[in-house]
């Protein structure tokens, strides 16, 4: 068990609901949220190793949450989840320091493997 901490943000509940057990099985501690403000509040007081976030959300959007996370915890690794329509924004996110972006729909395994990979480097 790695015991590393992952925080997942997507306004569609199914993303967190399905990712949580998959990541927990791989030994991560996982918290999932559908409201971005809650994630900002959480990150203000607690360090996570990985942030997995959707981009398109009510304010603050995924990019803003990522910026806040990076500012607060420079070592945090960020994975962007994106719908088809936001590939451009995802590219921008990569420029700003996201490790990877993954387009919906995606395989649970692929995301889990990605989280494992970036946390073991």
């Amino acid at each position: 068990m790695s015991g590393k901490k992952v925080i997942v943000l997507d306004d569609e509940p199914i993303v967190g609901e399905r990712l949580k057990p998959a990541l927990e099985k791989a030994g991560f501690e996982v918290e999932t949220y559908t409201e971005s403000q809650q994630v900002v509040d959480k990150l203000a007081k607690e360090r996570f190793d990985v942030l997995v976030t959707d981009l398109k959300m009510r304010k603050p959007d995924g990019l803003e949450v990522m910026r806040f996370a990076k500012e607060q915890w420079p070592g945090i690794k960020v994975i962007i989840i994106t719908g088809f329509a936001t590939v451009e924004t995802a590219t921008e996110a990569l420029k700003e320091g996201a490790v990877e972006f993954i387009a919906k729909p995606f395989k649970i395994r692929d995301l889990r493997d990605l989280v494992v990979r970036i946390t073991t480097v």
């Binding site: 997507d10 569609e12 199914i14 993303v15 399905r18 990712l19 719908g83 088809f84 919906k104 729909p105 995606f106 395989k107 649970i108 395994r109 995301l111």
Partner: peptide, 16 residues
Amino acid sequence: EKLGGEYIFDVQYLHD
């Protein structure tokens, strides 16, 4: 293929 459970997809995907 998405019904097999390997993928995560959301309602937006279904709309599209």
